[in-house]
Design a protein around this nucleic acid. Sequence first.
DNA 1: GATGAATGAGGGTTCATTCAT
DNA 2: GATGAATGAACCCTCATTCAT
Lengths: 221, 221, 221, 221
Amino acid sequence: MSKPSCCPITRWRRRKEVRPAEILDAALALFVERGFKSTKMEDIAKAAGVTKGTPYLYFENKEDIFKAVLRENLVTRLASFAELEQQYEGSSADLLRLMMRRWWLEVGESPLAGICKLMFAEATNFPELARFYHHEVIEPSHNMLLRVLQRGVARGEFRDINPHAVVDTLVAPMMLTMTWRCSFGKVITDSQHRSMPPLQYLELSLDLMLGGLMTGRQPQQ
Amino acid sequence: MSKPSCCPITRWRRRKEVRPAEILDAALALFVERGFKSTKMEDIAKAAGVTKGTPYLYFENKEDIFKAVLRENLVTRLASFAELEQQYEGSSADLLRLMMRRWWLEVGESPLAGICKLMFAEATNFPELARFYHHEVIEPSHNMLLRVLQRGVARGEFRDINPHAVVDTLVAPMMLTMTWRCSFGKVITDSQHRSMPPLQYLELSLDLMLGGLMTGRQPQQ
Amino acid sequence: MSKPSCCPITRWRRRKEVRPAEILDAALALFVERGFKSTKMEDIAKAAGVTKGTPYLYFENKEDIFKAVLRENLVTRLASFAELEQQYEGSSADLLRLMMRRWWLEVGESPLAGICKLMFAEATNFPELARFYHHEVIEPSHNMLLRVLQRGVARGEFRDINPHAVVDTLVAPMMLTMTWRCSFGKVITDSQHRSMPPLQYLELSLDLMLGGLMTGRQPQQ
Amino acid sequence: MSKPSCCPITRWRRRKEVRPAEILDAALALFVERGFKSTKMEDIAKAAGVTKGTPYLYFENKEDIFKAVLRENLVTRLASFAELEQQYEGSSADLLRLMMRRWWLEVGESPLAGICKLMFAEATNFPELARFYHHEVIEPSHNMLLRVLQRGVARGEFRDINPHAVVDTLVAPMMLTMTWRCSFGKVITDSQHRSMPPLQYLELSLDLMLGGLMTGRQPQQ
DNA sequence: GATGAATGAGGGTTCATTCAT
DNA sequence: GATGAATGAACCCTCATTCAT
């Protein structure tokens, strides 16, 4: 009924290879929007342009799709950051700013941002996956920032405060922004930072924290 | 395993007054742990010490329980803060520290903390409730902090930065901590701030941000 | 709270005796309106002015109430007809007219009329009851009319046609009217006989049939 | 006991086209036998040779099946009668006899006859459907008979009595027979007209009424 | 006797999954 | 490979019935 636009054979061949990715993309979007349980297999299929049975040709079951969604959407992202981390020569504060900005542009504004909310929501239902995600994404990211922090301390740029806690603090506005935009942000019109663009908010936020982190002054109180 | 403490012969006892609260408490815990959809009515009932049908004596259906959980667990908490806000005479930074500490002790460590995660997870599935929660809890809290900020600015304690963004930043570690502890925190052993106690983390975190907020320092760069 | 109007003791005593009847009246009305299965015990209780548990003090269960409703509402009615049948001296046609009129006034316009619809609806669900009702009500009534018919034939008033079939024919408009008024009649405004009063319709109808029954005419064709 | 005739290995076969009709047939039979509320979806499914979930592939819910049962089983039947009505040249009494006989053979002896009882039983529970059925079936049938009656009067065959009431009378034995056979008839062995065949009873019954209707004599009294 | 809180079997409906086509 | 009809376990909710008060 629907006419394939061009080169049917090539197209079919290609289709076979992209199908799983299309399904996972559809699944990610729906899982983020509705959560794992509330997402119906048929909706995933429909969103991927196939019918009910097709996802089962590529995945064992719904949980398997969930796993694959996470597996497919986390790898490789951190590599480029590692490179940046090792090559950057400027101030550590600027390195943090740079990383934050890149993270936002590459992740925060992409569909991947939703994984953050998704994992918060499903962590207790899928402990194994949560551990996996933690081990593969959170921990490495955390450690990377930890190293930047230590670099700053070593270079006399940053004060020497509990670094784990500082990383968690630095990261909080970002994670919350990503989470917020997939939840309240979808249903509340005039909200969050009163319409300041996210990136600008994140920069302001980072500056605020750097203000307390950088040396050149005594801790307030 | 656990049994009602007395009268093992008695199949049940009339507890009309306490049942709804018990049911809502059980429901809150389960909704937070598993999400709305994955929580079975029968589990709520069991957790409340009753059988399948009993919750329906007090609530129309599962969604009604969800609404009631939110309704019952948000009111009245903000009143005492308002009082504090109006009577406090010390520095605005200290007022923020005080508020943060009290919020943590009264909310962050109570079962209410879970609502934060719950709402993130369910906001898009229950837009009306999300708006309700936003209007009743988030907005008022935000505005309260806004006033403290403005007080600080007016008294020359704080720099005059976009106040909405600052509030969101100040609040981020707290919200994330509450969210984290109901999600990854449940399944990952050695995690978060590397076992620094939450309250201590939050204080450190607040100090960091106050470091960038308070006057008497130049904006870094 | 509600003040008993008079003589509380007497009233209570009397109550105890009328309760079952009140419950059965309420049950009859509801069974007729909604059918057995769709009628809730609590609605019966409410309609009888008592609470959920009370009917169980007087009846074993819902089916028992159903049985009692039928048992209580059929006896004794036929006695007065039997008397009429034996004493009447006029024409058999007039006797039929008289009986029909009395049946309508005493049964057709009373709540008992509903039993007709009720039994049609529930006969297959309660075969035992249907047989009981048939044996106690339908059969005797049928036989009574049969005797009147035979009296008419014996007296040369009526032609000698298959008497069972004639009785069934004579009775059809009555039964259908009773059934109709408890079903379509409740939901359709302008209907049935185009608002001719039921009794008038029944008389016309009977006359029509008597026209074919009485002697003095040739069989048409 | 009965099994699909072939391929016992096959769990099921695709029968998209026939399923809805099979389900509706099964539903009609069960609704007639037990009433709407007492009929379980699973029984309908089983009677249609499928499992619980299958009916929901074709119908929204039980009430939807009820509606469809009625919708599917009323149309088109009246058309052939209309034709008869317009072409018939013989006496009006014979036309009535003809119609009655055909109605009985085509409807009265088919499963459709049960709809009569079904509607009596459920009219008050489904007022909308009752009105629909009245408007689509009862009213047109009534009007058709009305026209035959008026034809008879115009041709001097019938006396001019209130025609609505006469139609209702003419129709009563038929409707009652259909109703009876789905109710008491199922549970009482030796009953109704004492085993005279229904069609014969209906003819006798019609002749009786025609006897009173046809001209050639004064109204009895 | 009367109440009404509580029970729990039962039935409507959903949807992940299977598999004949 | 792809489809989508069919399955059936699972879950929400109802309501007849019980029984502590």
